[in-house]
Design a protein around this nucleic acid. Sequence first.
DNA 1: AAAGTTGCCTGCAAGC
DNA 2: TGCTTGCAGGCAACTT
Length: 280
Amino acid sequence: MPELPEVETVRRGLAPHLVGRRIVRVDQRRPDLRWPMPPDLVQMLTGARVTELRRRSKYILADLDRDASLLLHLGMSGRVRIEGEGLGRFHHDPAVLPQHDHLVLTTEDGTTITLNDARRFGAVDFVRGEGHPLLAALGPEPLDDGFTPERLAAALAGRRTPIKAALLDQRIVAGLGNIYVCEALFRAGIHPTRPAGRIGPERIARLHAAIREVLLQAIEAGGSSLRDHRQTSGELGYFQHSFRVYGREGQPCLREGCGGTLRRIVQGGRSTWYCPVCQR
DNA sequence: AAAGTTGCCTGCAAGC
DNA sequence: TGCTTGCAGGCAACTT
């Protein structure tokens, strides 16, 4: 269930087991997830050493000591498990069905890294020299210095689309999904249906700060576990306990003295939760 | 058993 | 008219 904080949590869990290690065995259990995996996947990965593990938006990138990086996207239901000697036994996670283990990498020290994705909306591919179409149009990383209130304002200027939809558009800011958009809009006090281009500079600055704040707090909490997300250790993230609006339809607004009742609406086919009193 | 954390694609409308 | 851009909706496959 990965938005940026969940993907970052997975990246951090993976890094100590993968960076600097050589992949000695690759079991590809099916040819495709959302798209076909590259035909040379097994050949390219077998014997490769991972030199760096990065994240761009909701994508994990494993740089290899060959002319490519492995690109991983977890879609809606993707999980990564790490198992091996000295890592404790198989963690108890009955929701993971082995029939959805699609790719298993074994490193030189016997650790296995398993990509499990029931719905198969995820992706596995290589990024070769010329870049990758999935990465080409992505907007700024919200936690990087390049993401400023001014840049956000410029990206929203003139747009009549609701701010909720604009923030889900990965070309405007990369890495936000349904949960963190709802939470950021609540924290910024902005109504989800407000036209994106009709938010003043001061409120854009609040939104910018809210986006960063909620993402940083969620990363710190190991992400949010709804149905699918686990940290690579199998543990749950716990940011879902800090949701202020997501999934809280009909419940009272948590802002001191507000007294409003949270609502759910559907925008672009996705649920939006918000407080009609706080968010304007 | 309806709804779900993602994102691509299509089709239509609006704008230049 | 024709090209581009914007926006809404459908869809992929599976679980709870």
